[in-house]
Design a protein around this nucleic acid. Structure first.
Lengths: 346, 346
DNA sequence: GCTGGCCGTGGGACCGCTCCCACGCGGCAT
DNA sequence: ATGCCGCGTGGGAGCGGTCCCACGGCCAGC
């Protein structure tokens, strides 16, 4: 019965704690903490001792304990609207993930993946996120998405891929859709095409409007008359592309080129053109957008506008980390250049 | 100077705590905790009071505080080998994510996305994961992947999509690759094809061996002689498909069907067949695997073997939650049926 | 020589929760 | 009536960090 209060009790199969490191290094907890957090006010002697103890013990800081006191979770959420499966296809999603992930792991933050339903649960989701992460990245935002605003109200730094409207108040990254579209149409003009149609995306997306502007601009610059008959709205699906193409052929059977707002739409257009007895690119040239896996695999391989997806991911993460660092200030927008990838369809 | 120790100090812009709920409900902290965690030993009076207080205060439990004491993080990681961009294409990745996410959010767990490099960092990654999550889900495991074993050694429950070898010790979910391949070849036989070649995947993947077995089995069942000349190895890429097809045509110019181990491989094969002057499906029928976006968009649309991807995701998560619940026991394997989707290529 | 300031340091208080012990109370068997 | 049991309960201890205050030692300035 001489058990006078168990001294340190090495703790069974448990990971070493900061306390254990301090004991082993012969310093106080505060000093270990300072070393870990890179404080300059530590003598090199202490620092060396602590670093050695950390290495010997294989110490890894307990994130929960740190979060409890600092109120930072060191994690950000990537929110994806459920149903936007389009996003998951190459190269979009892999690129975004790779970029975001690279930027985040470099600073020791972790990435949470959250699928969001587009129903009335957005308020609940916003509150959930505000308790779980330091910031939020969102892709595929639509004009009427409220989640970004809800998050903003809760003070959760948020960065979007793309803007909801031309005056997006939140930080965001987007490709130069306007310039990409203009370049695509210029390319068609250089190939000698003169009756150039376009199949757009959904009207409630900013990318649709930007690409349409680029299309118009290119034609006006070239003094080619623009005909509203040559503009049809699609929905980014293959079926939408077929339907739109059918309508275009009805209106202007003499068209000699089509600029589609997505590769999948373009692939539908190609099918419909072929069904009407036209050859691509001999009779009608076709350009897509996204440079997706479909562009490379359909026949003929599709000329397409490529976005710097991975860099967009990296930039999104960087902007968010910026906002985190400066407490919500420094909200910025970044526009990245696109590149035309020429293949057999033009 | 009459400031005698600030009493409760309502705390400024901070979220309500369990203490605040207890005070408002007029009960002790223990009781609030019991209500939140669904303990049965709470009088219905107390329970009602607590629930009302929670609602009024908009209380959300602090996960870090809970994790600190329970040593559970209530989160699992989905580990994806970097470079396996193939996985990111429709429908694979979106399906897995949707299935996993649905199952996890139903029980309040969160999903961490982790990109893993295939270098010597795996030990570090394993240790990182063991500190950050309760369990791990892995996709695209190769025969020589060590991460699953490292995790197992650290006692981190792990569930794989697919098996590394035929005697996978870890819990895993896979599609019936054998049955799917057999069914595909049977379909070709029913279409009257007799000289059926196959382009496999990489030999270090179990799916490759399983699909090859199914191919052989179907031919043997039908008393069609199998010729090793008809088997060529690919690598799941389009270029690999072209190369393999070229080799097959050299060896057996009389072949009348090809079963490819992936849609992308199949699309390469189709291009090469066409280049050789053959028509698909008139001269040579082609079947792919995965029922990916490529299958639907190439010309002709590809007959393909579809896997129940979303269900695989759901099942993976369910198996992991099971292991979590029973402390690593109940390690199981689940095989899900495939389905042949017939299109114009056969 | 004394004072002031700064540097490096140790350690108490605390973050918000769960775990568990101890207590009061009523009902049942003795 | 007395005991015991078990239920519902309150609250102390502790999880593993960070923050910050106080302290000793040293050097520079007067």
């Amino acid at each position: 019965m001489t058990s006078a209060a168990q001294p340190p009790a090495p703790a069974p199969g448990r990971r070493p704690t900061l306390n254990a490191v301090a004991a082993r290094a012969g310093v106080g907890r505060g000093t270990v903490s300072r070393v870990i957090n890179g404080s300059p006010n530590v003598s090199s002697r202490s620092r060396a001792a602590v670093e050695q103890a950390i290495a010997e013990l294989g110490y890894v800081p307990n994130r929960a304990a740190r979060t409890l006191v600092t109120r930072r979770t060191d994690s950000v959420a990537l929110v994806i609207p459920e149903g936007e499966d389009r996003l998951f296809s190459e190269p979009y999603f892999s690129g975004i993930i790779r970029g975001v992930s690279a930027e985040l792991t470099a600073v020791g933050m972790q990435l949470l993946l959250v699928l969001a339903r587009n129903d009335g649960e957005q308020a609940r989701l916003a509150s959930y996120l505000s308790a779980r992460v330091d910031g939020v990245l969102m892709v595929a935002v639509h004009r009427d998405d409220t989640l970004p605003d809800l998050l903003d109200d809760l003070g959760v730094p948020t960065v979007l891929a793309g803007q909801r409207s031309e005056h997006e108040p939140l930080g965001h990254v987007r490709a130069d859709n306007y310039g990409g579209a203009r370049g695509a149409v210029q390319h068609l003009l250089e190939r000698g095409r003169r009756v150039i149609a376009t199949i757009t995306g959904p009207l409630n997306m900013d990318v649709t409007r930007a690409r349409l502007s680029g299309y118009r601009e290119a034609l006006e610059n070239a003094d080619v008359s623009t005909d509203e008959q040559l503009i049809v709205h699609g929905d980014f699906t293959e079926e939408g592309g077929r339907t739109a193409m059918r309508e275009l052929l009805r209106r202007r059977p003499d068209l000699d080129a089509v600029f589609a707002a997505s590769d999948v739409t373009a692939s539908g257009a190609v099918l419909e053109l072929r069904a009407s007895g036209r050859q691509v690119p001999e009779d009608v040239a076709v350009i897509g957008f996204d440079d997706s896996i479909v562009a490379r695999h359909i026949d003929p391989p599709l000329t397409s506008v490529q976005q710097p997806i991975e860099e967009m991911g990296r930039t999104m993460a960087a902007l968010l980390l910026d906002e985190l660092a400066q407490q919500g200030k420094g909200r910025r927008e970044v526009v990245l250049p696109t590149q035309l990838v020429v293949r057999a369809s033009t």
